[in-house]
Structure formats: structure tokens, C-alpha cells
């Protein structure tokens, strides 16, 4: 077929995709997370990372941090679609502001003995990871940093005896004195 067959096919122009981190301030009420996730699955948007927690308990506000990928037009859509939901207060594109800090925490379990134990501790020290549990044959490390650093640490632990990983997903906040 030398010409596009359908209006729907044309939507999938292969424009370059970008990764954006969105901070979404919502009313913490039943179903609000389901609404946000349902929007992403229903409209075919990607979720790379999702972090949710109540941040202002008196006002019942929760902050959702979503890392998503898409073409610039899709990212714009996602923000508008989020913003028009009734319990959503604000949507800030942290990537677009260019002035945000992103952090992720991971707990990494490593098993092994002898030289591997020494190597694990040395790498943990280099990455400023802390030992939060230890047995004669294992460690659990806690590491905090941006996602790339966390991933790199996990990759290094793999040959040493990586057992499992639990990651929180990305939390983000803007630099400077202003809030979102």
C-alpha cells in the first residue's frame, strides 16, 4: 500500500518520542489513582514510572509523579487530559521546567560469599548505598539517586549475586523557593 489507508494509521506518525516527568497534585479521595491510571491505559499512553503518596494530609492532597514517553503532541495531550479531571489541582511538566530534581530509592538484595561480599561492599560504598540488612551470606542495600544511577548500581550487582530489587519509582520536585 503506497498511501496511508486510514485516518487512524496516520496518527502513528513516527515522530521522535520524549520522556517527561509530570507532577500531578490531586485530591486524595477513593478512586483518584484509578482515574489517572485508567486515563493512561484507556488512551494508550505509556507509564514508565508511577509514584503516589499523600503529601498534605490536612488538605487531603496527594502528589502523583509519572514518568511517561510520547511525541511532544501526545505529552501535551496527556497533560491536558490530566488537568481536566475533576479532582486534579495542577499538572506540572518537570522536564519542561528544566529545574527539577528527580530521585528514586531502591532496595537491592545480593547473595554471595568470599570476594563477592567484599566487592559488593566496595561498590556500595562508591555509590553511597547503605547496608540495611545483613546475614552471613547476603546483604540488602538501600540506594537513592536518579534512575540511571540506581539502574547502574543494580547492573553492577548482577554478576555478584543479585537476588531481587524493589524500586519506589521516581519522585520529583522543582529547584528554588517556589512550590508547584
Amino acid at each position: 500500500m503506497n498511501q496511508p489507508a486510514s485516518a487512524y494509521f496516520l496518527e502513528e506518525r513516527h515522530d521522535p518520542t520524549e520522556s517527561h516527568t509530570l507532577s500531578v497534585l490531586v485530591q486524595n479521595e477513593p478512586g483518584v489513582l484509578a482515574r489517572v491510571i485508567g486515563l493512561f491505559s484507556g488512551r494508550g499512553y505509556n507509564i514508565e514510572s508511577l509514584t503516589v503518596s499523600e503529601t498534605e494530609s490536612q488538605k487531603h492532597l496527594s502528589r502523583i509523579t509519572i514518568v511517561t514517553t510520547g511525541t511532544p503532541m501526545v505529552i501535551e495531550q496527556i497533560k491536558h487530559q490530566l488537568d481536566r479531571m475533576v479532582p486534579v489541582y495542577r499538572v506540572v511538566d518537570m522536564t519542561l521546567t528544566g529545574r527539577s530534581i528527580e530521585r528514586e530509592l531502591a532496595m537491592v538484595k545480593v547473595r554471595g560469599g568470599g570476594d563477592n561480599r567484599v566487592e559488593a561492599l566496595r561498590l556500595a560504598d562508591a555509590f553511597r548505598a547503605r547496608v540495611i540488612d545483613a546475614t552471613t551470606e547476603s546483604f540488602v542495600f538501600e540506594i537513592t539517586g536518579n534512575s540511571a544511577k540506581v539502574s547502574q548500581f543494580i547492573d553492577l550487582m548482577r554478576p555478584i549475586g543479585l537476588v531481587e530489587v524493589s524500586r519506589t519509582g521516581v519522585a520529583a520536585i522543582g529547584r528554588g523557593p517556589e512550590g508547584m
Partner: peptide, 11 residues
């Protein structure tokens, strides 16, 4: 009236 209608299909 709906910002999500803007630039959804056509720039």
C-alpha cells in the same frame, strides 16, 4: 472550552 481538544488531531 476543553484544552484537551486543542492540538489533539490537528495542530
Amino acid at each position: 472550552i476543553d484544552p484537551s481538544s486543542i492540538n489533539k488531531n490537528i495542530h
